[in-house]
Amino acid sequence: MMSRFEALQVLYQYTEHIPVISSCGNTSREWASLGRRDNHLYMVDTMGLTPSVGIGLSLALKDKPFKKVIAIEGDGGILMNPNAFASAAYLRPEKLLLIIFDNECFASTGGQCSLASKIDIGKVAKGFDLEVIAVDNTEDFEQAVKESIGKDAPIVIHAKINQENQKRPNINDDPAVLSYKFSRFINEA
């Protein structure tokens, strides 16, 4: 099974010009450690809100020249706010790509067991009538990312990952600055 960091390395190659919002905890830290980009918005708290922000953003950017808007969330985050599945199902924002990294635990806080160890998040998303691509290795993940970027429909990639959690520096920037860089990128596009 791939690690979150290996999957992020793959994703990084396809997101030079795609808005990406990443969830709090170590996901944003590993993601930022690959190289900061203004088109990537790093969330430092508000666990579970990343997919919701991604949904709003994909509505607003409907007519902008971005192929997709990507929200990265963990299993703990999406099960804290499964409302995002309901919104995606109801609104069907065609630019939305929601990537769920499912390690069946709260890796960022020490690897405590999460509800995902007994719940198939992919099935939950399908229950909301969302298109789901299930993967557990980097080759399939890369294929899923490429395929999703080319499609005009909301897509969920349910990526099973191992529990590896790479220690990376904290993102301690003023969120106003993170937000400013991101908005400037969006508005100039």
């Binding site: 579970g48 919701s52 607003a60 919104s87």
Partner: peptide, 16 residues
């Protein structure tokens, strides 16, 4: 409401 605030924030960040 939390979901509404998140979606509205995304819309606002996107310039709408």
């Amino acid at each position: 409401e939390e979901e509404g605030v998140g979606i509205a924030a995304g819309i606002s960040l996107g310039g709408k």
